[in-house]
Design a protein around this nucleic acid. Structure first.
Lengths: 227, 227
DNA sequence: TTAAAAAACTAATAAGTGTTAGTTTTGACG
DNA sequence: CGTCAAAACTAACACTTATTAGTTTTTTAA
């Protein structure tokens, strides 16, 4: 029936990938059928195979495309001369901007990568691990340089990345917050939390005895529930 | 063949729910079949229907069970007399502990709820919205009380919740970090980032011109890619 | 030991899956 | 207009899905 109309610079393959990304984010990879994708474009499912190799290949393209962008940025930042905390801030800002520009693809590469077929799954996981390791190395140097508090670098990295990943759910709520406001608030919290010195002692001391009791009560309930 | 052997206090329904939760987290709700669940227990798929109503009902039980736990804790905290920042810290610690104790169910209620059938989907989303709104209200009061920096409360809440949600991926890596270490580091970063006063100005000023150039270069690449 | 209830089993259904084969339509160019 | 390739179409396949029906086995209780 209707022919696939490519966007200005986008090949037909890119049109399919983009529509698929939207559906994968909305319904999940497994719950999205080739017929769903085809229907969203206005075509029958088998027609897609004139342009793409398989459903899995679409997922592969999305995940590795995003991974390449982030790895490229990380390499640039690593080579720069800035203070380590500034490097981290720069990476945080890059992640946030990317999340706002391409949140559908990023959501998929964050949450649907587990459906990649081998050997792509192992490759992707290795890249992911490598990215986080290099990020942790920057944090580690920032700690040694007393720019960043005495935190566990791995924990700091996943805390940052998880926090940013949550922008997806924020985007989905449709709140039309100014992107800059979002970015500045998140940077304030995350960089503020990393900055030397951390004040773990102040925080611990502030929880009074009554509060501890409430917490204990709830945790006890849960433990009983499990047994 | 083998009969379902209930755990010490767990009904057969709970055994199924637990096994299902493990699989839903590992493979996703849609990609997990009733045969998968039955096989993991050691029975045939139709046998499950002697104990549960449907696959969707398992998901419903998991999601609403978790929601009830968090809502219950929030109510207790709201009624307490502590400083607002301490309330937030208490909730953060509750979330982190829960994440460590029941991360499979929590992962599902965080990431697979979209597969709930109506009317449960709408109900769940409403509860979620309500929870976040009440959390934001605490943050708001903390700001007015000058315990918390002048941040956007909604952004602060989702940043916190997203960061904690990421513990799931941490757990999955199998790192046997001491739970207390994890908790203290995350609390240090998040509470440290919320505390009054925030130093947005310092952070912005610290990014030098060269850094900005690197960032700009990468973002330009991405925008071109999209057109 | 026997009767009743619980929970397993096998067989089957209707719907949906990704994908292939073979055919027809479309659009661009000479 | 006629040609050729690109890309759509229909039909079909081999599988998998959640779930039901009907039956047999196992456990419980008297």
């Amino acid at each position: 029936m209707a022919k696939i109309i490519p966007g200005k610079n986008g090949s037909k393959k890119e049109v399919i990938t983009q529509k698929a990304a939207t559906l994968f984010r909305k319904k999940g990879f497994t719950a999205t059928s080739m017929r769903d994708i085809a229907g969203a474009i206005g075509v029958e499912a088998p027609s897609l195979y004139n342009h793409i190799e398989s459903k899995n290949a679409i997922l592969k393209d999305i995940c590795f495309g995003i991974a390449r962008l982030f790895t490229g940025n990380l390499r640039d930042v690593e080579l720069g001369p800035e203070l380590y905390l500034v490097k981290i801030e720069s990476i945080i800002r890059f992640h946030i901007s990317m999340m706002i520009l391409e949140y559908e693809s990023i959501y998929i590469s964050d949450h649907e990568w587990k459906h990649l077929p081998e050997p792509f799954l192992s490759d992707f996981k290795a890249q992911r691990r490598n990215y986080r390791t290099r990020l942790a190395a920057i944090v580690q140097k920032g700690i040694e340089n007393k720019e960043i508090g005495a935190l566990d670098p791995d924990i700091a990295v996943f805390t940052i990345l998880s926090a940013i990943g949550g922008i997806e759910s924020w985007q989905r709520t449709g709140r039309k917050t100014d992107a800059k406001l979002l970015e500045e608030n998140m940077v304030a919290i995350l960089i503020g939390g990393l900055k030397y010195p951390p004040e773990i002692k102040w925080v611990n001391g502030s929880a009074d005895i009554k509060q501890k009791a409430v917490f204990h009560k709830n945790m006890t309930t849960i433990k009983n529930r499990k047994s």
